[in-house]
Amino acid sequence: MPGLEEQRTLESGYVTLDDLRRHGNIPPDEVLESRAVPIFDCIEEIPCTPCRDACPTGAVIMPTMNDKPRVNWEACTGCTLCAQACPGLAITIVNIPFGKKVLKDPAKALVSVPYEILPIPKKGERVALYDRGHRYLGEGEVFSVIRSHKYGTVLINVIVPKEIALEVKFVEVIRDE
């Protein structure tokens, strides 16, 4: 059980990658390397179920409305619907094999970031990448944009260096002055 460490995190108002590892929200490396997976920044028992309700394969496990979501990595197809549905914008989809398979660049990965601020970044635009505490991580490129009519939250698919894929949580369009 997380003790003092957790207290400190809650005080700062956000979840760290270490918190997520301790809560089992980061899949094992072999899963990360083999397919797209959702990373749930959701470690509190709050009454909220849209991710579970959106999942077409039953991969989000949540027996009661207050249970923390758990992902059955084997059942998850990486379809991104949970990230579109989450009212907390707490889910990013990390797709590490995308670099090797689609971009032919194993040093790159694709991260889907939920986004609700205008202007919506466009395909091809450069974006600044930030982590959970707004620490600047470098630049990425918008690969595509998913506009969900059903759930209303846009997903920005960003190409990022593979080693920071789990850290990217927010993007901002870089505009020329």
């Binding site: 809650l10 005080e11 956000y14 920044d41 470690i43 707490a90 930030y130 707004h134």
Partner: peptide, 17 residues
């Protein structure tokens, strides 16, 4: 000492700086 907000809500504004 500690925010009473859901962590998901406070995380949203912390990541925006």
């Amino acid at each position: 000492k500690k925010s009473a907000a859901y962590l998901v809500h406070s995380s949203k504004i912390r990541r925006m700086g």
